[in-house]
Design a protein around this nucleic acid. Structure first.
Lengths: 214, 214
DNA sequence: TGTCAATTGTCAGTGGCTGTCATTAGCCTC
DNA sequence: GAGGCTAATGACAGCCACTGACAATTGACA
């Protein structure tokens, strides 16, 4: 019986409603803009009441980040799976890159990859969403710092290095995201490439004298 | 005549109203919390209409960051005045530390230093304000990157190092602010110290092997 | 002093978000 | 497989941030 573990009709229905709301929201956001889209529109598109929308999402913002959320979880999983002999920055670097490579599998059950990338670009160009995105990133950072500290057998609260390393790493990721969002090429390949080259610059950028070998 | 450059009554009145609104807002925010304070309360405390509040500030958030804004401008000025022979990170480091030392002179005409520090702590512990704070920081970062690039005679858009360096620096500043806000000691001295020790860790934290000399 | 322009107050309306309560619809037991 | 239980939904009312429009007030300046 494959019905053994399969959730009941109720649960499946909820999942469908949620997914439909996410799709409708992202489609409307990327088409007409985030601020220009009202919650009523989203709810109407899925034929539920506004109240129901707010039962699935804490706010309009929350819907915009539904997929982002999945991508982040995916990334954290990958970091967790990195072999312990890799240094902190090496592990983070490989995990992000692998994350981009396998992003589609992680989200395709809800939205097409392309819609997600358009949404990401929208986030990077909408002030309110930029703010929310940064706050979410800060939370992710804390998680990563603990994870890295764990790998290295350190106490996050005693040794500042895990947090500092993750902060530097995240800073670079943020710059990358912003640049990608401002550019022409919205593809995953483009941001993958940007990520790699920017991470390569982290070491050199901290050298005090930038003109020695240049 | 010292009245020569002194602004007219109209201008002075506006300044007084604005300052009063800032003081009332910060006092209410730090006393009862940001979300628990309505714009009407702030306006009432200064005896102006709600509409007038919104003529001075783009939103409730804006009032919360009025002093922060001044502190940032102060900091940027200090970076600009750093002698050109200092490396990028050295210049940034000295500017922040000097910024903390001279913060009071920069803001005392509007609010007491202590109220500002309480506000900063409130910001660091209120999700909506954290988000806004991070977005503002991101804008500051862009400004700093251009400034640093200028000092070094580089093109921000061609060479990723200015942005990467500033991103790493800002990442550390952010960690510092968060830790300070979560701690007991709300004094300027406390955050000054935290800043110094965390910046010291930036180099070491990027070393792949954290256990060599430890 | 009277005119002009800037500042403010009032009012009405939109949109995000929440609490409440009645209704509907899976689910589970007898 | 009928009836009761509970979760999900819809409908309604209301709060608060924020905006546009218009009228009243008040410095500025000839």
């Amino acid at each position: 019986m494959d019905t053994a573990t399969r959730p009941g009709l109720r649960e499946r229905k909820k999942q469908r409603t949620r997914d439909a709301l996410v799709r409708a929201a992202l489609e409307l956001f990327t088409t007409q803009g985030y601020e220009q889209t009202t919650v009523d529109e989203i709810a109407d598109a899925v034929d539920v009441s506004q109240r129901t929308f707010f039962r699935y999402f804490a706010g309009k913002e929350d819907a915009a980040f539904a997929i982002q959320q999945m991508a982040e979880a995916h990334f954290v999983d990958l970091v967790r799976e990195r072999p312990p002999h890799e240094g902190p920055l090496e592990a983070l670097r490989r995990a992000v890159l692998e994350g981009w490579d396998t992003l589609n599998e992680a989200i395709e059950s809800v939205v097409p990859l392309e819609l997600h990338m358009r949404t990401y670009q929208l986030i990077e160009s909408t002030p309110v969403l930029i703010a929310a995105h940064l706050r979410r990133s800060a939370e992710l950072e804390e998680q990563l710092a603990r994870l890295i500290a764990g790998r290295e057998g350190l106490d996050v609260d005693a040794d500042p290095r895990p947090r500092v390393a993750v902060a530097a790493f995240s800073g670079v990721m943020r710059v990358t995201g912003r640049l990608w969002g401002a550019g022409e090429d919205i593809s995953v390949e483009a941001i993958r490439e940007l990520t790699a080259t920017h991470l390569d610059q982290l070491g050199p950028a901290l050298t005090e004298n930038w003109h020695t070998g240049n």
